[in-house]
Design a binder for these strands. Structure first.
Lengths: 240, 240
DNA sequence: TTTGGTTATAGTCAAAGTTACAATATTTAA
DNA sequence: TTAAATATTGTAACTTTGACTATAACCAAA
């Protein structure tokens, strides 16, 4: 190395891709952003994320930021990738917004992306001061700030590999009680292919960790479906 | 955010986990390091990697650093994870070494880890000035600098997921001509389980992209094995 | 009260894939 | 010539998958 070129020193941020499942589709948790561009205010959305403090660990920064922006606590966040391209901050809109919010000049930013799979029904998204969090179906996500669309794609692909190696992660997305159809829809949407409902029952029957309950749907407009639950102990036994 | 806590600003580095396969075991490319600790010189090893320049893209920095330290060019590096824990630089030995090498004070460092799968026989590792690169079996890697042991574990796990989604990546690790046993050993070592040789032939027979050659091993002290090659075109056809 | 629409769930069967195991083939070294 | 070692082929039981058919339960409209 030559001594006259400066070493890279960058700001660090975290961004959280929190995924939920509404029974039909995957949804991702976004926050609204309000900024100014050429004297005019604009509104758009982004992933919950922020620059982090100098003395923070990445993991705890991700937890802190997610709580601050969405009110969510105790979310099992996992780091899955860093995004460090210089043109992440290509859009002047993003840079203005950031420097206004941070009251500091900001150059290149490396962001560390986290993923979490949560039960969408468990979640109470409160309105925080200035920001507002909301669920958006992943197939209807509008253009977001920075490279957040790219981060979401990477997260979805990461989720697929997670699930194919260890399907139990999928149950994090379902309520404690779920129907066969809900589980099948989840498989279909995660792996991107249709499954034959009838054959899916047989598959379920072969999963000792999916246990049938003596409880059925109510008030549906057709035959009521049985509820099932995920039995983690059974699953761990199998895995040995 | 409060305005009085400084934002994190860190140095950025890249580290390359280059994996090869010698027909029996996976090996990883390491470089020797010489440093000083309490007035005494020490020698140990690390992944090829380095801090990067301010104006560099991550990907090209990884390429540059790998070439500088090992002489390897045209290696298909893929980013797979960032490591940013503050105690990556916990060991004073590592910090001294770094500050001596860089002639600058260095605090926290976020490193972006890359992985590459290469043909071990294609590679000519030249001795560079000051450094020396060598292949080390992954199951015999000694304690390395920084958190490089952890990075290697993460790379191996990443390789497994890669291979299970797209087995063709495994052929990057094999020479152009390989025996059924070599391919089987590779599967065994990557997925960590023994495979029945006899049944493995049938599996191979069902892979249209593994084509048998009319060429056999020489000078072995048992029946000579047939050579096969990987046919990427066939593979791409299947994948549609 | 019956009928039809809709989704849930069970059963059947053939095709394809997996596994364990036995048998045979080639090569070098003794 | 034989033994040791690994390569390859064959076979049969068993499991999984996929397409398809049939039946069940619920609601609403006729």
């Amino acid at each position: 190395m030559t001594a006259d070129t400066p070493l890279a020193k960058t700001h660090l941020s975290v961004d959280c891709t929190v995924l939920g499942f509404d029974g039909k589709r995957l949804e991702v948790l976004l926050v609204r952003r309000t900024g100014e561009e050429g004297g005019r205010r604009f509104h758009d959305m982004k992933l919950p994320g922020s620059l982090i403090w100098e003395d923070e660990e990445l993991d705890s920064a991700a937890r802190r930021v997610l709580t601050e922006l969405t009110g969510l606590k105790h979310v099992p966040l996992t780091q899955f990738r860093a995004f460090g391209s210089k043109d992440r901050t290509k859009d002047p809109k993003d840079v203005h917004w950031l420097e206004h919010a941070q009251k500091a000049r900001v150059g290149r930013i490396v962001t560390v992306a986290y993923i979490a799979l949560v039960k969408i029904d468990r979640i109470l998204v409160r309105e925080m001061e200035g920001t507002e969090a909301l669920w958006v179906p992943v197939d209807a996500v509008p253009p977001l700030a920075f490279d957040h669309n790219e981060i979401i794609s990477a997260a979805l692909s990461y989720e697929r590999t997670l699930a194919s190696r260890d399907p139990s992660v999928l149950f994090d997305l379902l309520p404690r009680k779920f129907t066969a159809t809900a589980l099948r829809n989840l498989y279909e949407v995660v792996f991107g292919r249709r499954l034959n409902p009838s054959n899916f029952y047989k598959q379920m029957a072969r999963m000792p960790y999916v246990v049938a309950l003596d409880e059925f749907e109510r008030g549906v407009d057709h035959r009521a479906a049985r509820y099932y639950r995920f039995d983690k102990k059974q699953y761990d036994i199998i895995r040995l």
